Amino acid sequence: MDVFMKGLSKAKEGVVAAAEKTKQGVAEAAGKTKEGVLYVGSKTKEGVVHGVATVAEKTKEQVTNVGGAVVTGVTAVAQKTVEGAGSIAAATGFVKKDQLGKNEEGAPQEGILEDMPVDPDNEAYEMPSEEGYQDYEPEA
């Protein structure tokens, strides 16, 4: 019985440690998101679009440190934060509304985080759909 109880105690310690790591990862992701939003706020009209992409990228980098179902929630929060940063930029006159959601080359930025393969159960990952990809044929 002692062996059984000791095993359960060790398992509990492992769960607590994993929860603490997840909590730490979420806190880091939130900190990076805040950094990115402050970065966007300090940019001029020309830099705002690039700044919004930076927020998304920093958040995406930190999301990889967070495991399990938390990833889905962090990704949703990050996307809403990026959308909010863009709205703030438009409201303050840093950028025109028609410039939001495009990178410096004018290509749409939507789907940055949505296409990231995420499995809350950590069982399997699927690649994003290939609808947006084109076949590449090298020139002879």
Rank of each mutant, 00 (worst) to 15 (best):
D2N: 15
V3I: 07
V3Y: 03
V3K: 04
F4A: 00
M5V: 13
M5T: 01
K6W: 08
G7C: 08
L8F: 04
S9E: 14
K10L: 08
K10E: 01
K10N: 03
K10S: 07
K12N: 01
V15D: 00
A17Q: 07
A19C: 05
A19E: 00
K21R: 14
T22W: 15
T22D: 00
T22L: 14
Q24I: 13
G25Q: 10
V26A: 04
V26L: 15
V26R: 00
G31M: 15
G31K: 13
K32E: 00
K32R: 04
K32Q: 03
T33I: 05
E35S: 13
G36T: 12
G36N: 12
L38I: 03
Y39D: 01
V40S: 01
G41E: 01
S42L: 08
T44I: 14
K45Y: 02
E46K: 08
V48R: 01
V49A: 08
H50D: 04
H50S: 06
G51N: 04
V52C: 03
A53Y: 15
T54K: 09
T54N: 05
V55T: 01
V55C: 07
E57S: 07
K58S: 05
K58P: 00
T59L: 05
K60Q: 06
K60V: 03
K60I: 14
E61D: 10
E61L: 10
Q62P: 02
V63T: 02
V66N: 01
G68S: 07
V70I: 15
T72W: 06
T72H: 15
G73R: 08
G73E: 03
V74T: 01
V74L: 15
V74H: 01
V74R: 01
T75N: 09
A76P: 01
A76G: 06
A76M: 05
A76L: 14
V77A: 14
V77H: 01
A78C: 10
A78L: 12
Q79E: 03
Q79Y: 09
K80N: 04
E83I: 04
E83N: 13
E83A: 14
E83P: 05
E83T: 12
G84Y: 13
G86Q: 12
G86D: 03
G86L: 14
G86A: 14
S87W: 15
S87A: 15
S87C: 10
I88G: 02
I88E: 02
I88W: 07
I88V: 03
A89V: 14
A89E: 03
A90G: 00
A90L: 13
F94Y: 15
V95G: 08
K97I: 06
D98E: 06
Q99H: 11
Q99P: 05
Q99L: 15
Q99G: 12
L100N: 08
L100Q: 11
G101D: 14
K102P: 06
N103I: 10
N103W: 11
E104R: 10
E104V: 08
G106A: 08
A107M: 15
P108G: 09
P108M: 09
Q109C: 10
E110L: 08
G111Y: 12
I112W: 09
I112M: 11
L113S: 13
P117F: 10
D119Y: 07
D121R: 04
D121V: 09
N122M: 12
N122S: 06
Y125W: 10
E126T: 07
E126C: 14
M127A: 04
P128Q: 09
P128F: 07
S129H: 08
E130D: 10
E131S: 14
D135H: 10
D135W: 09
D135E: 09
E137R: 11
E137G: 08
E137S: 10
P138C: 09
A140D: 10
A140K: 11
